[in-house]
């Protein structure tokens, strides 16, 4: 693929084009300054935020995340992290839409269990249905289950986001063949959400044909988050280009790279 074509290789989410296929979370950083520097280094254009009770003067002068990551510069993707039922997830999305002046894009996650943070798939399907009916553009966190991914797409979710491994685990892609099946079946963007640990994990997701990767802890919990953010950016780009280039078939035995013909000994 030529360099010229690469600039046309865009991720399209809810009708908007993005040059970066890395989406990042904004939690677990040391402070707002580190958050801003790491996200700057990641090159991400879509950033996810959580919705929580507001500061009613307990922490005066505390900067707001939206002052640091302005909605004019970034596409803000509010998430429903911490929701364990469909009803609270839907409420959270409605509050987020109001907070962001009618912005409809949300990341739906309905969790099933505190130990694994695996999604409650039944509740996720229910919430997704309600949100789509209510006019939201739903990017949905789900299991690496192709059947559930297909259902979420059929409901009208605009992106399906299977986990690579449990949230915050950094275990990498535990079930690459399922991710591949999800990618092959889907007509909407598929993004790996959660579980990557390092740049090669991000590259692997992209090599499988994913449209993007969403991560938080892999960057924020690195010893040097800003450097890791830059590594992730490159891992995503390398993986995407390798996918587009089409890798050679793997073979069991060797195949010499230098010609046999013309040997003089």
């Amino acid at each position: 693929m030529s360099t010229e074509n690469q600039s046309h290789d865009r991720l399209i989410i809810a009708g908007k084009e993005y040059g970066s296929r890395l989406l990042v979370g904004t939690g677990k950083y040391k402070d707002m300054d580190e958050t801003a520097r790491a996200i700057g280094a990641s090159g991400a254009e879509i950033v996810t935020i959580a919705v929580r009770r507001t500061n009613l003067g307990q922490n005066p002068g505390e900067p707001n995340i939206l002052d640091v990551l302005s909605p004019e510069r970034y596409t803000i993707l509010p998430n429903t992290a911490g929701c364990y039922d469909a009803e609270t997830a839907v409420r959270t999305c409605r509050l987020a839409r109001e907070l962001l002046d009618g912005h409809n894009l949300v990341k739906l996650e309905v969790l099933g269990d505190e130990k694994t943070l695996f999604p409650d798939v039944m509740a996720t399907l229910k919430a997704a249905e309600e949100l789509v009916k209510d006019g939201f553009d739903v990017m949905v966190y789900t299991n690496d289950d192709p059947i559930v991914a297909r259902e979420l797409e059929a409901i009208g979710c605009i992106a399906v986001m299977p986990l690579a491994a449990p949230i915050g685990s950094g275990l990498g892609i535990r079930n690459p063949l399922n991710i591949l099946t999800i990618v092959e079946n889907a007509k909407v963007p598929v993004l790996v959400d959660a579980g990557v640990g390092t740049a090669s994990d991000a590259a692997e997701a992209m090599e499988l044909g994913c449209d993007g990767v969403l991560m938080n802890t892999a960057i924020a919990a690195a010893k040097d988050p800003v450097l890791m953010a830059s590594a992730m950016r490159k891992g995503i780009e390398a993986g995407r280009e390798a996918f587009l280039a089409g890798r050679m078939p793997a073979k069991r035995f060797a195949s010499a790279s230098s010609p046999i013909e013309g040997l003089f000994f």
Binding site: T26, V51, I65, A81, E87
Partner: peptide, 29 residues
């Protein structure tokens, strides 16, 4: 548990025992 849009703040009257939640964006993944 029902959203009160900004456009209705001026008219929305609170009742005894109302549960009011005021939320903001915070860092999260």
């Amino acid at each position: 548990a029902e959203l009160v849009p900004r456009s209705r703040f001026a008219e929305h009257q609170l009742s005894p025992n109302d549960k009011v939640e005021i939320i903001q964006a915070v860092g999260g993944g």
